[in-house]
């Protein structure tokens, strides 16, 4: 038994360590890119909600309500089945009638980005509300234009206040990548599933995945904690 387990995780040949690491790489790439895009989009959505334009605000509220109330898996299916059709519809407008297919990685990044945007926009809105009015008055008194004041005074402070919430959104993004295995993106969960079926040892491989995700989440929350304490004293 022991030797077989060691064989399973051998580096070269039929060992599964290399494919597992590749899968972990895809997971992390998808989570990182999706999260980064999601946080930027979330900031925009938050300001749409805070801003004067009523229609923009309503659209932003509808967006967050929808994406926070609907299972992420449903969003993934929408993007998976929907983007091809949408792109082909646009392409047909330009006179191109061929078949277009968006790969699973792009769909995955989009899914992670859209969902994290909905959650982080709420985090940013909370952070915005927590900034004292004096800060807004101060940049006005200094003669900064609203946009400049927002960029140099308010948004940096918002990020600091939003850090704990953004940490939670990041952990959610990692967890959401596991769902991408259903659209056959070759991330960690998918690799683990294939390995389990091929070797007939699904318990070992899924258990392995559980440990890997546990470690990822533990490292992430530790890292966010460290950044938080650093920022507090800055």
């Amino acid at each position: 038994m022991n030797s077989t387990v060691i064989d399973l995780f051998a580096w070269g040949g039929d060992g599964w360590t290399k494919p597992l690491l590749t899968g972990l790489g895809v997971t992390m790439a998808c989570a990182c890119i999706g999260y980064a895009l999601g946080v930027l989009l979330g900031l925009a959505v938050a300001f749409a909600k805070l801003g004067q334009n009523r229609w923009l605000g309503a659209a932003a509220t509808l967006y967050t309500t929808l994406l926070r109330g609907v299972p992420p898996l449903l969003v993934i299916f929408l993007l998976f089945f929907g983007t091809n059709g949408a792109l082909m519809w646009v392409a047909r407008g330009f006179g191109y009638a061929g078949y277009i297919e968006v790969d699973a990685f792009t769909v995955g990044v989009m899914a992670v980005a859209f969902v994290s945007a909905a959650y982080s926009s709420e985090v940013f809105r909370g952070a915005h509300a927590a900034i004292p009015v004096g800060q807004f008055e101060a940049y006005t008194a200094l003669g900064l234009r609203p946009l400049a004041g927002l960029w140099t005074v308010i948004i940096p402070q918002m990020f600091r206040l939003a850090l704990p919430g953004l940490g939670n959104v990041w952990i959610m993004a990692i967890k959401e990548t596991t769902l991408l295995s259903v659209i056959s993106l070759a991330e960690l969960m998918r690799v683990v599933g294939v390995a389990g079926r091929t070797t007939g040892q699904p318990f070992i491989f899924y258990g392995m995945a559980a440990i890997i995700y546990l470690v990822l989440v533990a490292i992430s929350s530790r890292a966010f904690h460290v950044i938080e304490t650093r920022m507090r004293w800055a």
Binding site: I174, K175, S181, G193, P202, Y206, A210, Y213, L214
Partner: peptide, 13 residues
């Protein structure tokens, strides 16, 4: 641990 992993461990594992 993501819920999907928990479900798969229980059902497939």
């Amino acid at each position: 641990i993501p819920l999907l992993v928990q479900i798969f461990v229980l059902y497939y594992g």
